[in-house]
């Protein structure tokens, strides 16, 4: 517990400084935030065009799709905001600059990820929250205390799934010289997350449910609020899936960190 408090305190100290430094480039902050805002809405535009010609997508209405998408945006925000340094890992590894992360008395993943805090991800989070409120009002979802707690728990585990999937792909850089194909694939796959899994063919649905479980980033947990009567028991296990995947990811990261120094000169 004392360790956790210490890390939290450290995190705030580092990020406060980081944000202060970024804020000196105001134009950069504004342009990237505006860009993030519109790219967040782009998928929504696709839905809107789609639903001009169809009434429902595999039985899901436009507003339900907006809800799933809003859930998705909130669930991927922690990765965007807190873990954004993952993009640079393969460069650090290839150029040898990754070595410095071994020399501080800190957890290495914490130290590595603390070097980046993605401000524009906050825009995404805010748009997601706004859309979630809007869609649930339109859908007349009543937010009892139990539902709100369920929402927070499922969002948390969905965020864990998202972080785990992307970081497992990122860790390929520890063993593969050019790891972009692996990371690119994981990054691309998450774009399927805000769609009903039922629109996918058997093999894809199986993959997205059991192998690269991006179905758990948005669609499956959203069902708890949209169609609670149809939910399969597996969905209730989603917090466990999130924690298990995150643990697996951390184990792979540790293996990577240990094997990396072994090959240096």
């Amino acid at each position: 517990m004392r360790t956790l408090a210490r890390y939290l305190r450290l995190y705030f100290i580092i990020e406060a400084q980081y944000i202060k430094a970024r804020m000196q480039y105001r134009a950069d902050f504004l342009v990237s935030s505006i860009g993030m805002f519109f790219s967040s809405l782009a998928t929504l535009a696709v839905f809107w065009i789609l639903f001009n010609s169809i009434n429902d997508l595999a039985g899901w209405t436009f507003m339900e799709m907006v809800f799933i998408y809003a859930f998705y945006m909130i669930a991927i925000s922690p990765m965007q905001i807190l873990f954004d340094h993952f993009w640079q890992l393969r460069f650090h590894i290839r150029q040898g600059t990754f070595l410095k992360y071994y020399f501080r008395p800190l957890n290495m993943m914490f130290y590595y990820m603390s070097e980046m805090f993605d401000l524009k991800g906050l825009t995404q989070l805010l748009v997601g929250i706004g859309l979630l409120i809007y869609a649930s009002t339109q859908l007349e979802i009543s937010w009892t205390a139990a539902r709100v707690i369920l929402l927070l728990v499922t969002l948390f585990s969905a965020a864990l799934v998202q972080v785990a999937v992307v970081l497992i792909a990122t860790c390929a850089a520890f063993w593969v010289v050019d790891s972009w194909p692996v990371l690119g694939l994981a990054w691309k796959l998450r774009e399927f997350a805000p769609y009903p899994m039922s629109i996918f063919d058997g093999a894809f649905r199986f993959t997205f449910t059991y192998i690269i479980p991006i179905g758990f980033v948005a669609f499956y947990p959203s069902q708890l609020f949209l169609r609670p009567e149809q939910v399969s028991p597996l969905v209730y296990a989603s917090p466990l899936i999130g924690i298990a995947l995150f643990a697996l990811m951390y184990w792979i990261w540790t293996q990577g960190v240990n094997s990396y120094t072994g090959t240096g000169s």
């Binding site: 305190r9 450290l10 100290i13 580092i14 400084q17 980081y18 410095k100 008395p105 070097e115």
Partner: peptide, 19 residues
């Protein structure tokens, strides 16, 4: 190993916390 974007003194203050 200092923080690239931060003023020098802030790097030292962060190190003070870390160690």
């Amino acid at each position: 190993q200092l923080w690239w974007d931060l003023p020098v003194i802030e790097s030292f203050k962060i190190l003070k916390e870390i160690y």
